[in-house]
């Protein structure tokens, strides 16, 4: 069970708002500092590890820029959205970030309320209102990647890519 404070965003939150142009090829830490700088400046200083994002329709539309990795880097525990862009979802799986489709979620929460998320039961509960919603189950193989750090660790174990060199910055 995951439980966290919610931050509400609207429909069509795009990849470039999460990973703005100037940091597309910067380090993951630098990318994370720029999340939502154009549409919600200062948010990265307010969000805390364990918080949950509530999104609207078509969350993550756009490019392959890894917004999911930046949200994971910021410590966001989970994203719940009315619908998810498929490429955003792929990056969520592969970078180990829990992102779930949860119809009705954008109207079931107002910002600051607490969400409880159970991937065992595929249910979300609003702690303040008691409302419960069903999430769309993620196929087991993909959920395992989401919860266990994504695809790179397994490619490292299989000797297909080198262990990440830590780069001095």
């Amino acid at each position: 069970m995951i439980s966290g404070r919610t931050w509400c965003f609207g429909d069509n939150i795009n990849s470039d708002l999460m990973v703005p142009g100037p940091v597309v090829y910067a380090t993951p830490a630098e990318q994370a500092r720029a999340v939502f700088s154009a549409n919600r400046p200062g948010w990265v200083d307010e969000v805390k590890p364990g918080d949950i994002i509530v999104g609207g329709q078509n969350f993550g539309m756009g490019s392959s820029r890894p917004g999911a990795r930046s949200l994971r880097t910021l410590g966001v525990a989970c994203l719940l959205a009315e619908s998810l862009n498929g490429l955003f979802f792929r990056n969520a799986v592969n970078f180990g970030f829990l992102a779930l489709r949860c119809p009705g979620v954008s109207t079931a929460f107002t910002e600051g309320q607490t969400a409880e998320v159970s991937v065992a039961e595929w249910r979300v509960r609003n702690v303040q209102t008691g409302a419960t919603l069903a999430c769309e189950p993620v196929p087991p193989a993909l959920l395992k990647l989401m919860l266990e750090g994504g695809i790179f660790p397994s490619l490292e174990r299989d000797g297909l890519i080198a262990p990440k060199a830590t780069k001095a910055k």
């Binding site: 890894p66 490429l87 990056n91 592969n94 695809i151 790179f152």
Partner: peptide
């Protein structure tokens, strides 16, 4: 399909990709 960089590395190294 456009995929993420990890998918790309997966396809280069294993020859495979998954699609929901």
């Amino acid at each position: 399909r456009g995929v993420g960089y990890p998918d790309l590395v997966y396809a280069v190294t294993t020859g495979k990709a998954w699609f929901k």
